[in-house]
Amino acid sequence: MDGFPAGRARHSVQVMHQVLLALLPGIAALLWYFGAGVLIQILLAGAAALGSEALALRLRGLPVRAGLGDGSALLTGVLLGIALPPLAPWWLAVSGGAFAMLVVKHPFGGLGNNLFNPAMAAYAMLLVSFPDALSRWPAPLPLLPEDQPWPGLLAAGHAIFLPGAAAIDAVAMATPLAAFRDNRSLLVAQFYAADPLFAAGTFAAVGWETVNLGFLLGGIYLAVCRTIDWRTPVAMLTTLGLLAWLWNDGGSSASAGPPGLHLLSGATMLGAFFIATDPTTLAASSSGRLLCGILVGILIFAIRAWGGYPDGVAFAVLLMNLAVPLIDRGTIPQPPGTVRQQRSRSP
């Protein structure tokens, strides 16, 4: 026992639980629009992450129960499960969860020391390895044919665990970002009217906009609780929105997409509030965090507008992670009353 009065506000385990809680609105929206497969993916990835974490802790000779109890592995698994297409084959979630823990997190020193966000590194690995499986999302609920019911546990489980014999494939549909990308000839307004996803949507594509708003809601809760730093998401969303507005071209056929599309499609809100804000892989100072947000915003837009992938959140976050040591080095805040001195090697 150490002489140290208690009374600290929150425990690091509570932090993880709070983040999981904040994910619920987004998950609920995903579940409603894309079926029970979402739940299965989250459970699969979560279980794989927890199992691999236990294995890694055991191999490193660290206490397994305490390590699992901190909730960080579960959070990684859940984030990965959310990012995966709801009907993707089971081995994607499992290998992704294992990759996140065994390759991205523990070799770098485990909790608090990993250079890259484990969930996004795993997602990026899966995306470059299995691009087709990762881009096959089902149609959102309002666009399902009359005879197709909401994919329940049975139907989704069938598609996930027996990927060969899947009848659900028939309703697979391009994601809004991919659909917009493939548009070559129509004006934005024409495209919005012609594409079923956008025709049924309010701000952007139906389903996807609700999911993004769900994550936005949870993210605002976290920012208000000061669990995450508001600077990163605000900087990232502002940058992304601003760039989209600049390159919107007034909605011409060469438009890179209006701000609404970029802000409420793909993994934008999930990335802004739950991925880029991962403190372990984020810069330390306030100004550094602001810079990180701006960098991610620029990279997401660049990849979406000019890169080879419809969405770029995972790659943008990973590239930002790579720049963090440098950003940290250049953004040490100046304590009050001190004068900025010449950089010097000697202490």
Binding site: M1, D2, G3, F4, P5, A6, G7, H11, S12, V15, A66, D70, S72, G110, L111, G112, N113, R226, T227, D229, P279, T280, L282, A284, S285, S286, R289, D328, I332, P333, Q334, P335, P336
Partner: peptide, 28 residues
């Protein structure tokens, strides 16, 4: 009233930097 548990790993949450009255980065 005592600190309840042994210290755990730093997760770099940065709350320490938010409360530091002289703008240090305790996590760093």
């Amino acid at each position: 009233e005592m600190r309840p548990t042994p210290p755990r790993t730093c997760i770099r949450c940065g709350w320490c930097a938010d409360v530091c009255p002289v703008a240090l980065l305790p996590q760093q």
